[in-house]
Amino acid sequence: MRILLVEDDRDLLEPLQEALDASGHGVDAVGNGAIAQWLITQKDYDLLILDWMLPEVDGLRLCQYYRQSGKGSPVLMLTSKDTTLDKITGLDAGADDYLVKPVDMLEFLARVRALGRRSPLWRGDILTLADLTLNLNHLTVERANKTVELSGREFQLMEYFMRHPQQVLTRIQIEETIWTWGEEPESNAITTLVRRLRQRLRGLNADSWIETVYGIGYRLRPPTGSDTPAILESNPNGQPPI
């Protein structure tokens, strides 16, 4: 999922970002309300995680602004304001969930998964293409009873491919989807990432699925004849990790 995480306490922002990254989410982490407000007009997110007290534009206003601009993705308020009135105010401003700090990391990740299921983009916790399956919760790829684990970024790329099979994805598209805001990928970073993913898929004998389209980008294509039409299927029975 593409997640915008807004939190001005860097000591909290960093571990949360790391945890979300490790769970295979693409996270834009910012510490300032005004930047966050600008970002939500520029990019589409599957989930917003907002602190309440933020510099310049507070989380409550951000949430209202987000809803007023007609965006429907879930919003999770993560704040130390803990009175009932605060919770009511937060939820009424358009938040879908409200967590009081300090929050257990595992619960936090479970809530993020739960909210992810409400995203209009959710198509189950397991994506299937031909005989290859990608488990969104375990960050694993499976084929013919063999399982390979992916790193956060490899997983994001794989998920992006799986959601757009047969399509040529340009380097710019990949960069915008996988690299977080404000992060400039090195010139060969995408090539490296694709190479790493291919290495992982080699374990499943599927490395040839990723085709290089010279001068444009890449495409995920199951070998023709190996299976009937390559249609993305969904399976909502995925188990959460840990």
């Binding site: 909290l12 945890a19 300090p102 990391m105 595992l106």
Partner: peptide, 22 residues
């Protein structure tokens, strides 16, 4: 007061847990 007391606790908890989870 609750913010001042909770913020460091939240940061501690998250930083310790990220060490366990990842």
């Amino acid at each position: 007061a609750s913010h001042e007391l909770r913020a460091p606790l939240a940061a501690l908890l998250s930083n310790i847990q990220i060490g366990i989870v990842k």
